[in-house]
Amino acid sequence: MPGLEDLYREIILDHYRTPRNRGELAVPPARHAEGHNPLCGDEITVFLDVAEQNGVDVISDVKIAGQGCSISQSSASMMSAAVKGKSVREVRALVRKFKGMMSIDTGEDDPEVDVLLGDLEALQGVVKFPVRIKCATLAWNTLIEALDNPVPSDT
């Protein structure tokens, strides 16, 4: 078995200890989605503010609520830092790339968008612990769900 240092990298533990973008956004105008990992009971809620800037939809703010293990929490925190300020199209490309790193086939990459994983590469070690892939991808699947959710109306 690979060593735990492959899994619990320092940057991961840092995001776990001091998670970024914790909290909630008012719904509406924000959209949100809840994710559950039935295996371990982890729960996560992703809140997104999407605003139009120069004709493109951009994630203007993101907040994460919920509880979970170090991998699900740090992955959510790193994700929130990575998507803030990116266009929705870039975010979708990033999700595909991240899931690709988790060895989940997501089909073709978007040829016109170039996104880098950056710090997220620290989560690469998770692939060696297949049981934990679900932990690492929970926030990402929930993010996509929040993007796909219709914006709630005021009424």
């Binding site: 078995m1 060593g3 735990l4 899994l7 371990c40 293990c69 170090s70 699900s72 934990r132």
Partner: peptide, 12 residues
């Protein structure tokens, strides 16, 4: 420590 992390460390 989250139970999932405990179980991971114990599994080692």
């Amino acid at each position: 420590i989250h139970p999932h992390d405990i179980s991971q460390v114990l599994d080692q």
